[in-house]
């Protein structure tokens, strides 16, 4: 494991140097062992900003499991319509080979007559690594999440619309949505459904614990949709039924007392052993007494 890490760091550093080098034949020769892979996705976040994310890796031609992230590569993000290309922003890849750029809620996009936004992420290449780019087309949508108590029923209401050229809301049809709640380490899926006529309704379970104050964070997510990409909405609400854990952990390092069975076993063992010691001592006294009697008899 240690040697793999070493290899990982070394090759990552090597590719980073390779990326900005011009005159290095040996490095070029090594880079040829790797196929460049470029992935691009967009996530519309809960504050209605849009995250653009490009993932740039080198895959070993011989060993496909050997994937090396491209570090410090400059990725440019564009909004394209026909021949027109607008630069949205640039970002450099992290050690994991990921470049991210966030567009604000009020960002104006070039859209076609159907309201599609054409986005491109591009690495312009250098002498060592060739140009790579990826394109996605998404529609801008408005996803709303409402948490309401309707007739004492805790209800999750999801509404989703797209917009036409004139900005009129068009309800979404046949689109999958997933409802999650935030757990300690990750999100927990609690329902899956389909948005129909721009709405999805779901009855929230009443036995979710939430945090120590009973707060729940509910997410509605359209995940990796072909038309809309990933769209996230979230809300906090005090619907949790938090109860303090009353069951004490048994036999922990910090327990003030050992488990009962341990006392019982120890007592049985010690009583058994000490009873035998006492029995031995009693017999020694009997031996002594007999010896004293014999001595008295001999003297008399």
């Amino acid at each position: 494991m240690k040697s793999n890490l070493f290899k990982y760091t070394k090759i990552t550093a090597f590719l980073a140097v390779l990326l900005f080098s011009i005159n290095s034949n040996a490095q070029e020769k090594d880079a040829s062992n790797y196929d460049m892979s470029f992935e691009f996705k967009t996530i519309k976040q809960d504050d209605n900003s849009r995250l653009l994310e490009a993932n740039f890796n080198g895959k070993n031609i011989e060993d496909r499991k050997d994937i090396i992230p491209m570090f410090n590569a400059e990725i440019k993000f564009f909004n394209v319509l026909n021949e027109e290309e607008v630069l949205l922003g640039t970002a450099k890849t992290s050690k994991e080979g990921i470049a991210q750029f966030t567009l604000p809620e009020n960002q104006k996009y070039l859209t076609d007559e159907n309201g599609n936004i054409n986005l491109i992420a591009r690495f312009e290449g250098n002498d060592a690594v060739a140009e790579s780019s990826a394109e996605i087309i998404v529609k801008n949508i408005k996803l709303a999440l409402n948490l309401e108590e309707i007739d004492s029923v805790k209800t999750v209401l999801v509404t989703a619309f797209t917009f036409d050229e004139s900005g009129t809301e068009i309800p979404l049809e046949e689109t999958d949505v997933i409802i999650y709640v935030q757990g300690m380490f990750s999100k927990m899926k609690i329902a899956e459904g389909t948005i129909s006529e721009g709405a999805f309704e779901f009855e929230m379970p009443t036995d979710l614990p939430g945090d120590s104050n009973g707060n729940l964070t509910v997410f509605s997510i359209i995940e990796g949709n072909e038309q809309y990409g990933t769209v996230i909405q979230k809300k906090n609400i005090k619907w949790g039924v938090f109860q303090k854990q009353i069951k004490e952990n048994q036999n922990t390092l910090w327990s003030s007392a050992a488990p009962v069975w341990m006392y019982v076993v120890l007592t049985i063992l010690l009583v058994g052993v000490w009873a035998n010691y006492i029995y031995t001592i009693i017999n020694l006294f009997k031996i002594k007494k007999e010896g004293q009697d014999i001595e008295l008899e001999t003297e008399s």
Binding site: V273, N276, Y279, T280, N283, L284, K286, I287, K288, K289, E290, G291, Q292, I294, E295
Partner: peptide, 23 residues
């Protein structure tokens, strides 16, 4: 302790030695 190696003493002592050896 007044051990005279009488049959009773001998038997008693060897009995407790035997038990102790197992223990």
């Amino acid at each position: 302790i007044g051990y005279q190696d009488t049959p009773t003493q001998h038997e008693r002592l060897h009995k407790i030695i035997r038990i102790m050896s197992v223990m």
